[in-house]
């Protein structure tokens, strides 16, 4: 059994709990994500226990677990534009991609990475972490102070 992955009973283990594989979708990141270049396959877990948040759990070593949010629930003025190279890498999605921002649950603060959101082409389930040129979007945007 891997530290995180799909257990024999079909449950997916994450840092945020175990979830039924039935509730999930696999997203392929052909280039991994920065810092985790070998992590090509992630499961997108949208479970009741996490709702409205999403867990992105890698199926490849070192099996990182991320908590993510729909950015429109964080900031109404957040309108990431998919850069041309990223649009091509996602296979030219017809419409808008599915956007998610990665959250960091530190001891005293929760932050969202608005500078490098995750874009997913819902038709092909290909994903990519997009580095936005707009430096007004912070890497660590405070979601709330605790």
């Amino acid at each position: 059994m891997t530290p995180s992955g799909i257990a024999p009973n079909g449950r997916i283990q994450t840092r945020f709990g175990d979830f039924d594989a039935v509730q999930t979708h696999v997203v392929t990141f052909p280039e991994g994500i920065p810092g985790f270049a070998e992590c090509r396959r992630f499961v997108l877990i949208q479970a009741d226990e996490l709702s409205p948040l999403t867990c992105l759990q890698s199926l490849d070593a070192p099996y990182p677990s991320f908590l993510a949010a729909d950015p429109s629930t964080l900031r109404e003025d957040y309108r990431p534009e998919l850069p041309v190279p990223d649009r091509a890498a996602l296979g030219d999605p017809a419409g808008s991609p599915l956007w998610l921002v990665l959250l960091t649950l530190a001891l005293h603060e929760v932050t969202a990475n608005l500078r490098a959101p995750i874009a997913i082409n819902p038709d092909t389930m290909i994903g990519r972490q997009v580095l936005l040129d707009d430096s007004s979007y912070p890497v660590s945007w405070p979601v709330e102070a605790r």
């Binding site: 945020f16 709990g17 991320f66 908590l67 960091t104 649950l105 972490q129």
Partner: peptide, 22 residues
């Protein structure tokens, strides 16, 4: 972004903190 991803993948995440965030 690499550094931010590494932090996001390992930062402490108690169930209480997750509940509060939800």
């Amino acid at each position: 972004i690499r550094k931010a991803n590494a932090t996001a993948a390992t930062a402490s995440s108690t169930s209480a903190a997750l509940e509060q965030l939800r």
